[in-house]
Nucleic acid binder design. Structure first.
Lengths: 321, 321
DNA sequence: GTGAAAGCGCTAACAG
DNA sequence: CTGTTAGCGCTTTCAC
C-alpha cells in the first residue's frame, strides 16, 4: 500500500500539499495539483481510513443495527441506508440484534470502538442503548421502532393497525384473528392497539394469538375452525405469507372463507396467489430518511418530510371487498 | 472516550502494561492486571480500533460483497458470514454490487482503504477483482460464484442444473421452459448447461427464456400456452415464487398442468401453496465456510469439508411425482 | 514485570 | 502557495 509520503515523494512536494490536494482544502497551485494527481494514479494510492479516523476521531462508518435482515422489510431499510450513505462517502456496518438486547449492546460497542460517525437502530424497550450512545456522544437515530423519549424515523403504527382493521371490516369480517409478533415490542403492541380500537368501535369480535403458535399448523387450524375465524390480521407480511400458505394447505378459500391482511408490503407479498393486501410503510424510504437525518443532510430533493412518512394501503386479492 | 492513557493513569502503571494486559501478551503481574481491569471498568474504556488498525495495518473488518441482499439467498450467506465473523471478533462491511462491476470495484477499494483483514465476494467474469485484490495482498475468497482461475466456496452448479432436470423428468415433463437469469453470470450459465445436458440425454424438448420477460405477464402466459409448456425450471426461488403466483393468476393448476422447480431453498419457498420444489445449497453454511476459510480457522467443528457443500433436493408440492 | 519511546499514515496549525 | 511538525491512540521493541 502506497502512503501519502510516497505520493509526496513522487510528486516532489510535501505530504501537507498532497493532503490539501486530496481534501480540496487550502490552496494548491493548479500545476502542483496535477503532479499530485498523477502520482496518485501512478501509485494507485488510496488514503488509509484508519489514519484519518485516528486523527479526526471519526470514521466514515455508519453503524446499522437491525433485528434481522432475513426479514425483507429490514433488508429494504438496509438498502435505503446503504444507498444514500454510499453517495456521501460512508460505509455501513450492519448488525443483527435478533431482538436480543445483549447482542445489540455488543454491536453498539463495536460501533463505538470503530469511531462510527453515527448509528441507526431500531429502539428497544430498555433505555440502555440511548444511555450508552449519549454517553459516548454518538449521534443516532432510531428507525421503525422508536420510543417515547427519543424521536426517530418511523411511521405511525397505531394508525397502521387502524387501517388494517378498517380493511377487514370493509371485507365484512365478523370474527377476526389478530396474529401478532411479541407484544413486548412496542411497534407490534401499537399496531394491535390500533386494530382493537377500530374493532371495538364497530363491536367486531376478535381473538388474539402470538405468532409462535404457528409451529403447530394442525392445532392452529383447529383454532380457526373452532372460532369460525373469517379474517386474519397479521403483524407483518412474513406472517401473512406463512398463514396464507398454511390455510390454503388446509383447503380454505382465500379471501372468500378467510381474508388475510399483512403489513410492510415486502416484495414477496405481491408474488403469492392471491396477492396479499398490506400496509406499505416504504421501508427503503425510511432508510434513506434515517441516514439523511443522521448526516444532517438537506433532504428536500429526497422529498423527505413528515408527509412522506405516510402509510399506504395496498388493496389486493387476499381480502374481500 | 477514555484512552489507554487514562486507564494507565488510573491504574498507576504505563500504557505499555495496559496494552499487555488487554491483549494478554507478555508478562503482567496478577495484581497489576487486576488494577488495570478495574480501571477499564471504571472508565468504561474501549480500545480505539482505528489506532490498532493503523499500527497493525489490519483492521478487524471483513468486506462482504454480494450482488443484492434483497435476495434472501444472499441474506442467508450474509448471516452465515456475520455470525462466525462475530464470534472471532470481526465486524462485516457489507456491499451490494447489483452485478455491476463498477460498483463492485468501488466497494473493493473502500474495503481496502479500511484495511480489511480479508474479503468475501461473488466472482465476476472480469478478472479485475482478483487483480486488485492480489495487488493489495488482501486475502479473499469467492463465494457462490467462483471462476476458473480462483477457487472458492461454492456448490456445483452444473450438477444442480442436472438435479433440476431430473426432477421435471420424473414428473413426466414433456415440454420444458428454462426460465433463467442472465447467462452472462457463470453460475446461471452452468446450471442451464446442467439442465440441457440431462434434457438432451432424454430427448426432452425445451424452450429458454430470460427472466426479464416476466415484465409482461400476459405475453409470458401466451408463450406458455403456445408452446404447451408443462414444466418450468427456474434459476432461483425468487423467480419460481414469482412464476407460481403468475401462472396461478392465469388459472393454471400447479403441479398438474404446470410443474415448477426453483433453486436455493430460500425460506419463502416453503411458504407458498403449493410449496416449491427446490435445490438446497445451504447458503448460511456457505457463508460460514467462507469466513472460516478466510480467517484460516480450523473448521472441523463446523462440519466443513467438501462433503458438506453438497446439494439437497427438496421435493415439494410444486412438482409431480 | 514494567516503562520509555518510536512509529503506524494522516491532518491541521503554523510559519514562511 | 508550500513545508515542518505535532499529535490522534495504540502496540511493540528495547532497556532496566
Amino acid at each position: 500500500m502506497a502512503t501519502i509520503k510516497d505520493v509526496a515523494n513522487l510528486a516532489g512536494c510535501s505530504v501537507a500539499t498532497v493532503s490539501r490536494a486530496i481534501n480540496n482544502n487550502g490552496y494548491v497551485k493548479a500545476k502542483t495539483r496535477l503532479l499530485v494527481e498523477e502520482a496518485i494514479a501512478e501509485l494507485n494510492y488510496q488514503p488509509n481510513e484508519a489514519a484519518r479516523t485516528l486523527y479526526k476521531r471519526k470514521s466514515k462508518l455508519i453503524g446499522l443495527l437491525l433485528p434481522d435482515i432475513s426479514n425483507p422489510f429490514f433488508t429494504l431499510i438496509a438498502r435505503g441506508v446503504e444507498d444514500v450513505a454510499l453517495t456521501h462517502g460512508y460505509q455501513v456496518l450492519i448488525g443483527n440484534s435478533d431482538n436480543d438486547i445483549k447482542k445489540a449492546q455488543n454491536y453498539l460497542s463495536t460501533f463505538v470502538s470503530h469511531n462510527c460517525t453515527g448509528m441507526i437502530s431500531t429502539a428497544f424497550n430498555e433505555n440502555i442503548i440511548e444511555a450508552t450512545l449519549t454517553e459516548h456522544h454518538i449521534p443516532f437515530v432510531f428507525i421503525d421502532r422508536i420510543n417515547n423519549e427519543h424521536s426517530g424515523v418511523s411511521t405511525n403504527h397505531f394508525k397502521g393497525g387502524q387501517l388494517q382493521a378498517e380493511i377487514v371490516r370493509e371485507g365484512k369480517g365478523k370474527k377476526i384473528l389478530i396474529l401478532h409478533e411479541s407484544l413486548s415490542i412496542d411497534t407490534f403492541a401499537q399496531r394491535v392497539q390500533g386494530i382493537q380500537h377500530v374493532l371495538n368501535q364497530y363491536k367486531i369480535d376478535y381473538k388474539m394469538l402470538e405468532a409462535t403458535c404457528l409451529d403447530n399448523a394442525e392445532k392452529f387450524v383447529d383454532f380457526i375452525r373452532q372460532h369460525n375465524i373469517d379474517s386474519i390480521i397479521c403483524s407483518n407480511d412474513l406472517l401473512a405469507i406463512n398463514i396464507l400458505g398454511t390455510v390454503q394447505r388446509y383447503k380454505f378459500k382465500v379471501p372468500s372463507e378467510i381474508q388475510i391482511i399483512g403489513y410492510d408490503n415486502i416484495p414477496f407479498s405481491e408474488m403469492t396467489h392471491p396477492q396479499i393486501t398490506t400496509i406499505d410503510q416504504s421501508a427503503y424510504h425510511l432508510g434513506e430518511v434515517a441516514v439523511s437525518q443522521l448526516l444532517g443532510l438537506k433532504v428536500d430533493h429526497l422529498g423527505i418530510d413528515n408527509e412522506s412518512l405516510t402509510l399506504t394501503v395496498k388493496h389486493r386479492g387476499s381480502t374481500r371487498k
